[in-house]
Design a protein around this nucleic acid. Sequence first.
DNA 1: TCCGTGCACGCAACCGGTTGCAGGCCCTGG
DNA 2: CCAGGGCCTGCAACCGGTTGCGTGCACGGA
Lengths: 360, 360
Amino acid sequence: MPETEAPRGTPTIREVADAAGVSRATVSRAFSRPELLKPSTVEHVQAIAGRLGYTPNVAARALSTGRYATLALVVPDIANPFFPPLVRGAQQAADQAGYCVFLGDSDESPAREDVLLGRFAGQVEGIVSASSRLAAQVVRRHADRRPVVLVNRDIKGIPRVLIDTASGITAAVAHLAELGHRRIAYVSGPQTSWSNQQRRRAIQRASSASGLELVTVAARRPTYDSGVARVLDLLASGVTGVVAFDDVVAQGILAGLATAGVSVPDQLSVIGCDDVVAATTSPPLTTVSARTDEAGRFAVELLLRVLGSSDVRDARYVLDTRLIVRATTGPAAKIASRSANRTTSGGGRAMQAGRKIFGS
Amino acid sequence: MPETEAPRGTPTIREVADAAGVSRATVSRAFSRPELLKPSTVEHVQAIAGRLGYTPNVAARALSTGRYATLALVVPDIANPFFPPLVRGAQQAADQAGYCVFLGDSDESPAREDVLLGRFAGQVEGIVSASSRLAAQVVRRHADRRPVVLVNRDIKGIPRVLIDTASGITAAVAHLAELGHRRIAYVSGPQTSWSNQQRRRAIQRASSASGLELVTVAARRPTYDSGVARVLDLLASGVTGVVAFDDVVAQGILAGLATAGVSVPDQLSVIGCDDVVAATTSPPLTTVSARTDEAGRFAVELLLRVLGSSDVRDARYVLDTRLIVRATTGPAAKIASRSANRTTSGGGRAMQAGRKIFGS
DNA sequence: TCCGTGCACGCAACCGGTTGCAGGCCCTGG
DNA sequence: CCAGGGCCTGCAACCGGTTGCGTGCACGGA
């Protein structure tokens, strides 16, 4: 008895077609290519569809067109405050274009990242991989299957958006040199991180250019605790200024220093990177600012452009950075050491409101 | 001339079938229901498929089975540090089950959340909505189309995971009362937030139970800047203790107080909520701890259970919370007010390391 | 030797849209 | 009045797996 057709949860194109008295093709066109139809027909079909609560089935559409209207975003650690703004920016850009975004968290593991990219490749139009920890060759293999856009990873032939912290780092070193520092430290991040390599190189170059001695301390994972744990090494190293891989590490260092009774910036100057929590530390952190939200947005827009016309092959966007001087940098310690730490905040420097901006 | 078949980018089931000398059905079964096939056949097909680099097309599979192997997670603001750990937990749980997760950021807007849920409904098996700002009726409408699990939103009939901050808040108020505070403030969060309502109610109840006067100050958006902006109101209100909607607001308050030269906890005690940045503030923030990562994980596991057997209708998981006393709470100000702010950190209380834990 | 039984696999319809192609209709120009 | 040309719309194949049903075959029992 096929007389009573059970109406599914959500109606299909056929039911709309029947209700509207047209063919399925017409319903389809009413949604995807309305300019091919008589305006009155479009209106009629849309009305019926609206009444029935019809929504095109994305799987069916994806199957026949290959357009998924989705893309994937892979990050090493969503809990690292560097990434949420980036995710947000990417999200908004994708949204405007009607795309949905998958999120993947590789947990800083290249192996997991590889798995994620492979899994996503089958169900998205393109992938944005931020701060990829993968070997270049592996990234290329994935990029070979699906369009990939990188953020903060510089691989020739793959479209990429780079936050050029080198300029900001250079300004940071100059800032320290100007304040009379002679011996400084770089607390490094993940070894497979392009950003880390870039920053390390920039600081080496800038230090030797300014005649500063440079000590490197490895933090590996860029976490708060990792920053805290580096403090003893830092104090033992006899430096008067520190540049940290990122703000999170810098924040950990600040906390460690506070616990150790070392006053910032009187006894030690600290500079962060990314400006991601910098305004909320105490004292407010001098840092290298990067518009991470823009990086996310750009990456998605670039990806969409690649999807549109595949001749954008070797794009390479560079976002510049600036040094933002807040309150964790001051004159080198030998100068400050004659006085104790009388004034903790705002002492000796006329720079609390109105942030001063250096940089390229 | 149909002799030269262009091999597509990724091979289809037909090509594998041809290469293996079996039917498409057999290839399909080799992947989805191998127990129906002779072991040698399975092995053979898998080998061929592996060599060709075959991957089942998810869109095609989704179309014929209705199983998408995806789910969506919607949050009001990924940049709010409350959510990244939750996202992470959700992500991991989904991953273990072979699901990919869409992320949506509603930007605290009910309208956008509505759009997101609608868009996701068509392409996922289920949805986790965290801290939904939607009207209950609207949520129900969505839940009617697709299984929905809520986090921190209590709607009867819809499976939900709740972080019971009431218990922690109650302990917080008791803690303040014990320290001699008589008049305290609650800095509230988003009005449509269930958590905010829950916290406000808990603090009202606890205050009157302890005989404390309660003042409420509205922060609306739970941001750092919003916290900073509430400081003048707080100082004008004549309270000696403050409970903030969340850690982010509390952090802003701390910063605002520092700028205003008010010492914490000597002149004013501050308590946060969620324990999400609390360990990184200065002084370290006394707060109500919630395992947000577990909430995310639970929500996904619950969703998967709903998908498995749809008889879990009215599940309601409650995660308890605890008060973690760090360094922003101390004796009521009238005691401290006789002396100015001589000792900024660690004065008057023997409680820096070894955190004390109260709670349900 | 013949038939019943069950395993392993193929056939073909189906999921729900999309799109090249063809055909009907109407309008215009000769 | 007829031919030609557009404009709309329908037909039907197709995207790539999945799955109910049926069949061929081997094997065991009578």
